[in-house]
Design a protein around this nucleic acid. Sequence first.
DNA 1: TATTGTTATACTCTATAACTATA
DNA 2: TATAGTTATAGAGTATAACAATA
Lengths: 163, 163
Amino acid sequence: MPAHPHREDAAPADAGAAVDVGPLSGLVGYALRRAQLAVSRDLAEQFAALDIRPAQYSVLVVLARNPGLRAGQVALALGIQRANFVPLLDGLEARGLAERRRATGDRRASALFLTDAGEAMLARLEPLLAAHEAKFAARLGRDGRYQLMGLLHRIGDSAFDPG
Amino acid sequence: MPAHPHREDAAPADAGAAVDVGPLSGLVGYALRRAQLAVSRDLAEQFAALDIRPAQYSVLVVLARNPGLRAGQVALALGIQRANFVPLLDGLEARGLAERRRATGDRRASALFLTDAGEAMLARLEPLLAAHEAKFAARLGRDGRYQLMGLLHRIGDSAFDPG
DNA sequence: TATTGTTATACTCTATAACTATA
DNA sequence: TATAGTTATAGAGTATAACAATA
């Protein structure tokens, strides 16, 4: 709440009134941005206690599900550029959560694995994630959450489609 | 399509199969991120012809609707840090699309306005935005789009709520 | 020639602290 | 003392080009 003692500012628009964002509030992109920011901030807060960012979590999950996957495949699956995946994985490896092994058969490639510490980390992250999800599920309702997921997939799954 | 000539890589997981992202695909935050990325990329492409980014567009819209608004208010309305709003506005002012005037009554504050060129730019952006929105509206259907907006607002409007 | 991982680089977005000039 | 705008800075995310080793 602004102090607003005498309000002698003549020219500017009504300072106390709510700002009119006009057509922005009706745009899918704008609503998506606001929602995504709110959710990712909340998840980042939840994971901060374990010093894990959402992007790092997503890598841990994929490695847990697909041991031995190559770096390029993980990056592709997560929609990350291969070049940007390098420092991301570096960070996980430096902390002993994931490791690169030589892939047998193709000496260019690496096979990625979660370490035991990585598995343990994933287990500790799980309840934090559950709390995060529950918060937003409560706002949406069960049907709302189900509908939202369906609608979001209609948009995001075609990320690189032409039309 | 990977070449995959003899597939002698023994250790790694099945390279040809789709990667299992596990619980990620069921997370609201992950679906939001993918959808938001797809939409913002598309809008950025549409606006690229006029060298305008989505964030710049949002400022132009707010100024058009609220002439004389102060910088802090615009930043607050758009969820941008005041400090980050400065270079954003600098860019618009340098291109003659917006301008800062001295606010009467409070010599600390500035009153922001769209220039004629700014109004003209907004008019030229309008059809590009319409094409962008139409693309995603088509994927969602009219009801789907309406539902999505409602659900997203349930998440994003409470961006700074406690619970 | 093409691909894997990598390096280097740049730009945008986000975040925080601190300064200045006003109030 | 508090506020508006600003400066400076740092960290993430995203993007492209190019290189070495290997295919």
